[in-house]
Each structure stands twice: as C-alpha cells, then as structure tokens.
Design a protein around this nucleic acid. Sequence first.
DNA 1: TTAGAAAGTCAACAAGGCTGCCATATCGGG
DNA 2: CCCGATATGGCAGCCTTGTTGACTTTCTAA
Lengths: 172, 172
Amino acid sequence: MQDKARIQAMVGEDLLFLTDDQLRRGIEAMFFAYRAFTADPDLILADLDYGRAHHRALHFIHRDPGLTVTSLLAVLGVTKQSLNRVLRTLIEDGLVDSRIGRRDRRERQLHLTSAGTALERRLSEAQRARMRAAYRNAGPQAVAGFRQVLEAMMDPETRAQYQALKDLSDDR
Amino acid sequence: MQDKARIQAMVGEDLLFLTDDQLRRGIEAMFFAYRAFTADPDLILADLDYGRAHHRALHFIHRDPGLTVTSLLAVLGVTKQSLNRVLRTLIEDGLVDSRIGRRDRRERQLHLTSAGTALERRLSEAQRARMRAAYRNAGPQAVAGFRQVLEAMMDPETRAQYQALKDLSDDR
DNA sequence: TTAGAAAGTCAACAAGGCTGCCATATCGGG
DNA sequence: CCCGATATGGCAGCCTTGTTGACTTTCTAA
C-alpha cells in the first residue's frame, strides 16, 4: 500500500505516525542507534581479544548468578556450540566459574569470578554512560515511550522472558 | 556509583529513571528488540543466501539512488573491502547496477535494478510490518519518545548523517 | 608531466554464527 | 538395576561479514 493510499484510509484519525516514511525513519534510527549502543563496549573488548558474544555472556551471568548453560542459551538465542566456544575462553581466562549443580549434577552453574565481575562492570558502565546521557537528554516521558515501543517490538516469547528477568535491586 | 548513592544525590528531583537498574533494563530492551527487529528480514534473506549486510546495502541504495560506494561506506560504517564483497554479489545477481560516474570516472554510482527494487520492498515490508504493529500498539506519544531516545544515543556524526537523510516523500 | 591522493578491487585472515555427530555423566521411572 | 532422556562438552567444517594489506585506475595539483 502506498503512503497516500494509506493516509487516505486514515482520514479523521491521528495515525500519521504509521506512514511508511515514519516507519522507515524508525528502522534507520534503530540501525544507527544500535551501532552506537555497542560501540563503547566493543572498544574495550577489542583490546582484550573478546567480542560482543563474550560481553553478552558476562552480562547475563552477572544479572543472574548461578544460571545454567541451558538457561543462558535460551536467553541469548544461540546454539550451544556457539555459546560453548565463548564460555570456554571465559572460563579458561578465569572470568567465569563453572560449578557442578547441587540439585542436578549434570548442570553447570555459572558465576563471575572477581576478574569477571570487574570486566562486566567496566563494560556495562561504558554502555550505561551512553544510555544515561541519552535518557537524561530525552527525559522520563521519552524514556517510557522508548521502552514501550521496544517491548512491543519483541516476539511474545522474548517479551515474556524479558519481563520475567528479575530486578537486581543492587548494591552491586 | 551505587544506586542508593545515586538516588541520594537526586533528592527532590524526578530522576529515578536514571538509576543503574533502569539503565540496565533499557540495555536489555535494546538487545532483545534489535534481535526481533532483524528476525523477519533474516528469514527471507536466508532463503536467498544473502545476509543482513545485503539488506543494509539494498536499503540505502534504495533510499538514495545513484550514491557512490564511498558514500554508502560512510553510512554503513564498515570497510570498503567488506562492502565490496556484498556489493559484488548483488551486482552479479543483477539486483544492483554499478555505473561509472559521469563527473568522476573513479566513482561508481549505485542503483537498484527492478529485481533489486522488488527484493528491497519485500524485505522492508517485512520489517515495517513489525515496526507498524509496535508503533500502533504503543501509540504516537511513545513513538516520539522512542525516536528521541534513539537519536540521543547516536554519535553526533551519525546523528547528523541520520538527520540529513532526505525524506523519500513517496509513491514508490 | 608527474607525484600523490582518492576510488575501487582482490587476497587472505578472524570472529562468531550455524549444522552434524558423538561422548560422558547424570537423572528418573519402571 | 537398567534404560531412555537430559545436560553438557568436544570436534569438524561451513558461512557471513568484519578486518588489514597490496594493487589498479583515475583524477588533480604542482
């Protein structure tokens, strides 16, 4: 459907924000913003011969210490072979500790070591700094809208996962 | 700085949305939403033995026909060697037309063929469908906030580029 | 006219996705 | 106690898409 036709169909409604052109702007905004979003941690990681995959693993192990390989797999949405490669280097390098499960000895419970915690903090602080600046600049109402649209964009399963992620209520 | 300390520092201000926990939620929302954002085109691309890089090239050639390899490079933020490989397959497969520049014969001006236009439309319609649903669900005010935060997150140079991108004012 | 800059191409390498297949340890039900 | 299912790890090999380095063609300014 062309924009003009679409607009015709919306007469009397406040739906101009749904034109193809508006949607394309949103698509481009996602592309450019996501690139910026990963840029700061990527700089740190490159120095250490790690990649984004390592960052993601550290992030989710940090936020839910003791989670199993299978749970991490589900959150990250990659294959175990792919995760395993990343996890192995993190364990070898002493950033992640893999302990045999207490309930179920087949499981491996993942924790960050103190070195792992330090790197995670360094990475996430770099990422938070950018996010904080953007949030501050845009204001609380914009932030609410930002989160609302992102959530609406997720697949239902992912959204449930996202919403189930507990608050860390830290003093980390 | 810990959350509690940060919150202490905000007494009397409405800045709770800047806590580390809120920022982490935003970071996770970006991760999950971006994965969903690329999922639909990825399905189509996989069938055709193309990747996300091909999609991005098609997108920006579509939105600015005749642009040169160097300009496309600047928008995509990758090396020319990386782009070249993608571009070569698109040209070989007859989706993109590369014409020697008239002013400067070193330049290549890129256009979509009709086949390229068709694929671009198919890909972007898949992506727009998801975006449209998210926008409709969240409402115009949320969409405004979404765009505001994404723009604030970009690097200044990228933001300038993004804002300079012309409207397509279509009937494509 | 010639040196150097700029645009684009080719070659080779690495990260990190993927699939397929197999081994090991453990669990739980019959 | 045994047997099928589950959790994990490892190996091989493939693909896409980043990277750097070296090269050609073309343009421009000295």
